[in-house]
Design a protein around this nucleic acid. Structure first.
Length: 516
RNA sequence: GCCGCGGUAGUAUAGCCCGGUCAAGUAUGCGGGCCUUUCGAGCCCGUGACCCGGGUUCAAAUCCCGGCCGCGGCACCA
């Protein structure tokens, strides 16, 4: 042994398997010195729980805040009670998901609770002639805007607009009848930038907001609320999806009018997860039209954080994957192979090993004294304790695929127990003889080492597995100790793969298949 | 159509700003070996990539131009 070590040293090879940190670090942030303290934020829309793509912005923003000893803010952007109506439970689910991901925040804001602030600044903009209340019909405005022409209301005196604003507040206009626009460049190459909408009327009696109910009818758009808040909250670095690129251009106008400095922006590419559904709106519509076909918002075929957690993917694995993607603006499709490999390495040292047999075939063993109790450690090296497997009668189950091998080889080792020799088989039953001996003997015989379960002392196990977009349910049997695991625990089903205990009832344990 | 972003091995990523040290690093996958009472983990070795075409330069993955391909935006959504 020492010779090996010495040789390794001479060759400059490490045989200690020292833990390479391998923690990929993020590149430095631009212009940190010009801002002083780094302030980042994660600003989800609570219309649905967050998914892996959202988590990317959250994790990166949080890590940078920590890296620069700055501040991290959580801000719920819930200013559309009509089209993206907030889901009341989502606020808490998102908070929980973030905590689970290891993200903590220094400040939290909910935009629907900041309406008065938005109105204040809106009035300032109107007063100074930077914004106006537009009474044109949408089609009319669009027509003019596409030609680079001003709508007739644009050049009216600020006092008129202030007055109209009051009338909006008093409910004189209905949805679609008035809108507040910011004055930008009517010849901007991107028509959507031209005098974009800062506020619109939403009939909150018809579409009450879960937090403020029908208190407000004039709602800021994303671009107004986010732009204002980023400044008011002192955000210095913004990480958001590429789809927001134009929004930066739009929001600059507000900053320009107020004389503020726009934060540094990093546009991130979209994240996809192989064979998984990420789109919030898609998931939402599926759950609405086919509720019976799914396991809920955390159905393991979805890419929500809740789903990944339920499947047995660790928060650490998600963080590593996200870190590996870096801060590029290119889209990335994460493969399950990669995620599984990372997750495996995290779970392998800490998860219990248990015996589960798929498609059980009974093996009757002669020359075996029963009852007998076999004590097996839960983990080969980590100290996770032992479980006992009781055999009252000399009969065990092995999987049908192992049974086939047994028939060919003639010998097999029941893992951690004993070696047996094939005597014969009929129908769905194998007859064998206990020949005893240790692992070395099994190796000498060329006997495969397989997991097994006592035939008269089993726990029924249902394994749920995501196969692309289908859900497979595998029926199997496992050792009795499985019943005593805790829900949420991730175990390694020996020679099958990792699985998370999803449910334990008197007669069946449900395990969600994580990955190989 | 218009505006914008990007294209490094099967997949993901480093390098590109500040050309040479890049005959391109890492992870995963794949092939082989070792270890191991798992088809898991670990350890060795190997495999495999700069979208295409021009230009600048002594020198280009890196800079410039053109093309192709992919993606995003063009909402009274975020």
């Amino acid at each position: 042994m020492d010779d090996v070590k010495k040789l390794a040293e001479e060759l400059g090879v490490s045989i200690e398997g020292e833990v390479k940190p391998q923690v990929k670090s993020l590149p430095p942030l631009p212009n940190v010195d010009k801002w002083g303290t780094v302030v980042t934020r994660f600003a989800p829309n609570p219309d649905f729980p967050i998914h892996l793509g959202n988590a990317r912005a959250a994790i990166i923003s949080h890590i940078y805040a920590v890296m620069y000893k700055g501040k991290f803010i959580l801000r719920f952007e819930d200013t559309d009670p009509r089209i993206k109506k907030p889901m009341p439970e989502a606020y808490d689910i998102i908070r929980e998901d973030l905590k689970w991901l290891g993200i903590s925040w220094d400040e939290e804001y909910i935009q629907s609770l900041r309406m008065e602030i938005y109105y204040d600044y809106l009035k300032k903009l109107i007063k100074n002639g930077y914004a106006y209340v537009d009474l044109c019909r949408p089609e009319v405005f669009r027509e003019l805007r596409n030609q680079g022409k001003a709508c007739p209301h644009r050049n009216e005196d600020p006092s008129i607009h202030l007055e109209r604003l009051d009338r909006i507040f008093s409910g004189e206009y209905r949805e679609g009848e008035a809108v507040v626009r910011i004055k930008t460049d009517l010849n901007h190459p991107d028509p959507s930038v031209r005098d974009w909408v800062m506020f619109r009327i939403i009939d909150s009696a018809k579409n009450p907001h879960p937090i403020t109910m029908d208190k407000y009818i004039l709602w800021p758009t994303y671009n107004f609320a986010a732009a204002l808040d980023d400044h008011l909250m002192g955000v210095t670095h913004i990480f958001r999806g590429r789809e927001h690129a134009v929004n930066t251009v739009k929001q600059m106008y507000i900053y320009h009018y107020f004389g503020w400095r726009y934060p540094e922006v990093v546009n991130l590419g979209r994240v996809g997860l192989e064979k998984t559904i990420l789109s919030k709106s898609w998931i939402k519509s599926q759950l609405k039209t086919n509720p019976g076909k799914f396991m809920g918002i955390d159905d393991i075929r979805f890419g929500t954080i809740a789903a990944l957690r339920r499947r047995g993917i660790s928060a650490e694995a998600i963080r590593q994957i996200i870190l590996e993607l870096g801060v590029k603006g290119v889209d990335a499709l994460i493969s399950w192979e990669n995620i599984a490999s990372i997750n495996r390495k995290i779970l392998d040292p800490i998860s219990k090993r248990v015996f589960i047999v798929l498609n059980p075939i009974k093996v009757r063993i002669s020359n075996l004294q029963t009852p007998i109790t076999i004590k097996i450690p839960y983990h080969p090296t980590a100290n996770l304790g032992y479980r006992e497997i009781k055999l009252n009668r000399p009969e065990v189950f092995i999987s049908s695929s192992d049974a086939e091998v047994f028939k060919n080889v003639g010998f097999i080792r029941l893992m951690e127990f004993t070696n047996i020799k094939l005597i014969g088989h009929r129908d769905s039953e194998i007859v064998a003889e206990n020949i005893g001996g240790d692992v070395e003997y099994a190796k000498k015989l060329g006997a495969p080492i397989v997991q097994w379960v006592p035939a008269d002392n089993i726990t029924k196990v249902r394994i749920i597995k995501a196969e692309k977009l289908r859900l497979l349910k595998l029926r199997s049997v496992g050792e009795e100790s499985i019943k005593h695991l805790s829900i949420g625990e991730v175990v390694q089903m020996v020679r099958i793969g990792f699985g998370r205990i999803d449910d334990i009832s008197r007669n069946i344990v449900t395990i969600i298949y994580t990955h190989d």
